[in-house]
């Protein structure tokens, strides 16, 4: 296909997406996403964050292609604490393992934790917050007091206590982090629901005979979801840091798993002489956190400009 016809074709799709009178449900929905993307694309920092997150996901998916799985756990005691070289791009750690391979495969652990935490936190937060805001009264009081109890504990300490009680390991780290992360989501969902509870379109749905469940799921959830997702993206940095913190303290992923926090921890004894052992995974944690933060900020800007 020549460049000209390709461009004409792209123009055609663009026109189809931006059509003011879409011909189907799907065209309408895709057009809406495309417009949001156009707004998002203008925000340079957000695009940087999006790029970082995309890169992270790419690295995690294609890890076996860009690094040697064996090298991540292979101990070569004769090559301990070597600086960067052509053979070991980021050097080796105290057990002679290739840090590059460990960082690459570590992204899988980090993303797994992030995905699992999200999969727990969003449904729990919405499940508690939506009924509290929608029904009010006793339901609200009970649900919100439960939330307050969880909110009253310092996050890392509670996560530590859970991880210590359940035993160290990734699954338990995820449960510990999720348990301490959901309360703000419940509050957010409640606040969003409260502002919409008296909206006329909710009353209209009530008049049409819609059940509470239907109203919650079809009318209110779609409106709460954007702010929940934005909050989640902004929280990602904190979740990653908590996970790393648990790893650092030996309560997260267990050796020899290449978890970034645990890697920083193991490098701390040799920080002054072999700085790269702790610094490289530290950089990975830092870049990922900043990436998620920028992405979250960008998403917030896009949704704000649409609301305004």
């Amino acid at each position: 296909m020549s460049d000209v016809t390709l461009r004409a074709d792209l123009g055609h799709w663009r026109g189809w997406l931006l059509d003011q009178a879409p011909g189907s449900r799907w065209q309408a929905r895709l057009g809406r996403w495309y417009r949001a993307w156009l707004g998002f694309r203008r925000n340079g920092l957000a695009m940087t964050g999006f790029g970082v997150v995309l890169l992270l996901v790419g690295i995690a998916i294609f890890a076996p292609l860009i690094a040697d799985r064996e090298a991540a756990t292979l101990q070569v005691l004769t090559q301990r604490l070597e600086p960067a070289s052509w053979q070991h791009w980021f050097g080796t750690d105290e057990l002679g393992r290739d840090i590059y391979a460990r960082v690459v495969f570590g992204s899988r652990i980090t993303l797994t934790i992030v995905a699992l935490v999200s999969a727990i936190v969003v449904p729990v937060g919405l499940g508690i917050g939506l009924p509290a805001g929608y029904f009010g009264g006793m339901v609200d009081a009970v649900l919100m007091r439960i939330t307050d109890i969880f909110l009253a504990f310092p996050r890392l300490v509670l996560a530590l206590a859970f991880a210590a009680a359940l035993g160290p390991g990734i699954e338990n780290a995820v449960i510990a982090i999720a348990l301490t992360t959901w309360p703000p989501y419940a509050r957010l969902a409640r606040a969003e629901t409260l502002t919409r509870r008296r909206a006329e379109f909710i009353e209209a749905a009530e008049l049409q005979g819609a059940s509470h469940l239907r109203i919650l799921l079809t009318q209110i959830v779609p409106l709460c979801l954007p702010s929940v997702i934005i909050r989640l993206t902004l929280d990602m940095a904190g979740i990653i840091l908590t996970a790393a913190g648990l790893g650092f303290l030996g309560l997260g992923a267990q050796p020899p798993a290449p978890e970034w926090g645990a890697m920083v921890s193991s490098g701390r004894q040799v920080l002054l002489d072999q700085w790269w052992v702790a610094t490289i995974p530290g950089m990975a944690i830092f870049i990922t956190s900043v990436g998620f933060n920028l992405l979250g900020d960008g998403l917030r800007d896009v949704s704000d400009s649409r609301a305004g």
Binding site: A28, F201, E203, A204, L207, P222
Partner: peptide, 24 residues
């Protein structure tokens, strides 16, 4: 059935006309 005063507030902002009319 009822028609409300504010045509901006009485329709769900994230739903197409088709969705709004299909629900009842």
């Amino acid at each position: 059935q009822m028609v409300f005063q504010d045509p901006y507030g009485s329709l769900h902002p994230n739903q197409t006309v088709d969705q709004i009319l299909s629900m009842p």
